[in-house]
Amino acid sequence: MSTRIVEVRAKILKQNDLLAHALRERFQTSGVSVVGLVSSPGSGKTAFLEKLLSGLARDFRVAALVGDLATENDAARLKRATPNVRQITTGTICHLDAQMIEKALEGWQLDALDFLFIENVGNLVCPSSYDLGEELRFVMLSATEGEDKPLKYPTIFNSSDVAIITKMDIAEAADFDVTTARRNIESVRPGMQIFEVSAKTGSGMLDVFQLLHDQHAHSRETRPALQIEATQ
């Protein structure tokens, strides 16, 4: 049987991309800075986020969405820092997508927030394909994971904006060579900003707060909305 070719030329994830684009616009006009966090399981996303939320909550209105296959444990932990936390349980799905974000935000007043953090499912592969509408994506790597993690997962490191090296308090005990880790990050994502932190001791966290302050001030300045309300 003969066949004919029909041109399609469509992006496979166009539904997700369109939705992510719409979310990004919504975030911008609401004046909320949205930061996505990706890493492998157990690299310290939740501990880091707990520190961020409690540190920022003194001056800003903060919220978080947290993705996991199962349990509400992370949301319960983060609620110690702010009540504005929602868990997204994905069931068997290994990543968050824009539709899950849109649904999870239902009923939230975005313009009453300064920062929204989205903690993805612990996975260094799948989340790289899905835009969530975030303004910045942090990729995290813990000192116990080895310096070559960025080389093994180049796609996610390359698609992120900032790298955070966590658990620096135990770097020495884990024989972690931070210079090599930095060089590997630079190799997969030239020019990437890198922070070394310990959520436990708080070391390095001030630099991350400074980055977020600057980012927020910048997005407020370039915000397309008509009016910028005074911060509390």
Binding site: T3, R4, I5, E7, V8, A10
Partner: peptide, 11 residues
């Protein structure tokens, strides 16, 4: 890239 370029269908 992650695209559907074309489809081959019965003529």
């Amino acid at each position: 890239e992650l695209e559907v370029v074309s489809l081959e269908v019965a003529a």
